[in-house]
Amino acid sequence: MMNSTFNASNSSCVVMNPSAGHLLMSIYIIAFVLGLLFSLVTIGPIIQQICRKNILGIYLLSLSVSDLLYILTMPLWIYYLNNNHKWTLGQGLCSMAGFFYYSNQYISIFILCCISIDRCLAITFPLRVQAFRRQRYAWIISGLVYVSVMALHCLVLYLDKLEDPLDDNDQSCYETFPMTERIAMFNLIRVGVGFFVPLVILTICYCLISNKVQQSTGVDMQGKRKVRLLSIGVIGIFSFCFAPYHILLMIRSIIFFSVGEQQSCFFEQAMYIPFTCSLGLSSLNSMVDPVLYVLASNGVREDMRLFCWKNKQRQMTGSPLVGSKWKTRVINLS
């Protein structure tokens, strides 16, 4: 995998800054606590929407499952950073933690694209696409995203012989410097396919949604403002969480091809702290996903209020609620 000049350890190429590790650990702790809390709080209303034949609920559940899988590996990364980048938990856990990190990142990106495309088609071509907007299709699409992303990462691990991601000397987990030619090429491909293409799709979809809603006479000013702010929020948060990581990853890969493996160590050292910070930002998507698409929805937000109100009534009366307060409603996806 690596040139023999640098085979001794990562420290011969990049000296890991402890302050960067502490910053990243702090971000992981915040993302773990809030991400787990938000996911658990919103999972009930999401399932409620699926029971009501809501297609958006299926995509939200797909996001939540992916986020939870990654969130549950965060304590491993926190332990690793607190242990001064020394992984003592074994090869299997290191491989699993890395696998779920990268899988979650791109599952989240492509599920966000699916949600954006679905919303765009539902608003701009409501009659033409009605026959194709079915729950079973949403399940199939979500399943294909999971299978494709995970299969691709398994293939990459196999081709690059990363059965043992641990460095033999310093026991760092997935922090091998410098990168190899194959990994650099793969990085450029996944930046293009996994970030820039989805960003273009998101931008086009929400521009179409915004234009359609603004032209509509059946939507009041408050509704139009909500759609516009949601569109800006989706693209803004997408860029905030994923753009820094992918842009720096692209720059690192281009520099590697430009100056070669040995000379790239100087650049890797200079980019270590910024790239570490970008890793922290990318992990925040597990905290942002439920807030962005669940709390922004009137239907799901009302469900959460009903859940809280129902529990409060049970505590006051000691009996379950029945009746008209818990009637079924149809959520408006636009």
Score class of each variant (00 low, 15 high):
F266Q: 11
I107Y: 00
Y79K: 09
L157I: 10
S231Q: 05
T180Q: 07
C154T: 14
P198Q: 06
I237L: 14
Y158A: 13
L295S: 05
I58S: 00
L208T: 02
Q263P: 00
I47Q: 06
L229E: 04
S334A: 13
V156S: 13
I71C: 03
I47R: 06
P45Y: 09
D67N: 14
P75Q: 10
V259E: 14
V234M: 11
G280I: 08
G318Q: 07
Y80F: 15
V291M: 15
F240I: 04
S239T: 15
G323C: 09
Q171A: 11
I254W: 00
C154W: 13
L279V: 08
T42C: 15
A31V: 15
H85E: 07
S108N: 09
R225I: 06
L188R: 01
L93K: 06
V219I: 13
C120A: 15
A20Y: 02
I273F: 14
I183Q: 05
I30A: 11
R228W: 07
L24K: 04
L292N: 01
T276H: 01
F6W: 11
I71W: 02
D220F: 09
A31S: 15
S19Y: 11
L281I: 03
N104W: 02
V65K: 00
F38A: 10
V149N: 02
T88L: 12
Y137L: 15
M250V: 04
W139C: 10
V322R: 14
G44M: 11
Y79L: 05
I30D: 03
Y79I: 03
V15C: 05
F125R: 15
Y79A: 08
M1T: 12
L68P: 01
T42H: 09
L166H: 01
F256R: 03
Y174A: 10
F196L: 13
I331H: 10
P274N: 10
G194M: 04
F125S: 14
V145A: 03
C154F: 14
M316W: 09
V300K: 01
I189P: 02
C265G: 07
I141H: 04
S210R: 12
A243R: 04
Y79G: 03
L76G: 05
G236E: 10
I43K: 05
L162D: 08
Q269P: 04
L306A: 08
E302N: 14
E181N: 12
G44P: 00
N169C: 09
I78N: 08
L24W: 03
V234P: 01
S26I: 13
